[in-house]
Design a protein around this nucleic acid. Structure first.
Lengths: 115, 115
DNA sequence: GCTTGACCTGGAGCGCGCTACAGGTCCGAG
DNA sequence: CTCGGACCTGTAGCGCGCTCCAGGTCAAGC
């Protein structure tokens, strides 16, 4: 079979078991298919999706934002709504990049001063 | 006098009164000079410094990080230690920028797909 | 002097994003 | 068949960064 046990999925994604369950509970991933005995079986698609979620989490998006993203990709909203939402999110991320560049600028100033 | 009341300082910096007190308590700013009656009097320098703190907070640095930054700028550590610390912080911020760009890339993909 | 409102301190409370734990179930190795 | 470890659910706890509140003090306007 080409599914992964929870431990293997955690290992592959770098996300802890607890957090994987948490994400599933929060609707960010899954629901993950279960074995007859009730154990989770992660597919490669699941792993890929978890990677996306992790990517956005690392970029600083909150759980609620991610939930919105999931809802969007699964929903039956018209394409233009999706694009509007995506552009909005994109702009927010660009603003975060700008904030980081401001902070980096301050650091560079200080480094120049002490260097 | 050219000092600001707490309310004025909050207004100028965009930081709430409570948060200003919190930052002072945590050692991120001040201690702020007091009037005979015990009220805080913010100077322009204080306001400037609060701006720096806000800049770094917006960039995602934590309170502990900021405390380290404050300690550095006030401390008697050798210049090379300061520079090392600053470069380290800078690298961490660059990594955050990279994470943001990865997320933006994903959004762009989706936008292209739906657009 | 009296009122009113901005300010003070100390401490409790909150939302977020996990993280840990208790108590039970499943299942492969021996 | 038994054992042990990975897994299950549900719930409690934690650290962070504020935010709010109680109960009191200071000071400007009437």
């Amino acid at each position: 079979m080409d599914t992964l046990t929870p431990a293997a999925a955690a290992d592959r994604t770098g996300v802890s078991l607890e957090t994987l369950r948490y994400y599933e509970r929060e609707g960010l991933i899954g629901p993950i298919r279960r074995s007859p005995g009730g154990r989770r079986e992660y597919t490669e698609d699941d792993v890929f999706w978890i990677g996306l979620v992790t990517c956005f989490r690392e970029a600083g998006l909150g759980i609620a934002d991610l939930r919105g993203f999931v809802a969007l990709l699964r929903a039956e909203h018209p394409a233009q709504d999706r694009v509007a939402f995506l552009r909005e999110r994109r702009a927010a991320l660009e603003e975060r990049v700008a904030a980081l560049h401001r902070a980096i600028g301050v650091l560079d100033e200080k480094i120049a001063y002490y260097g």
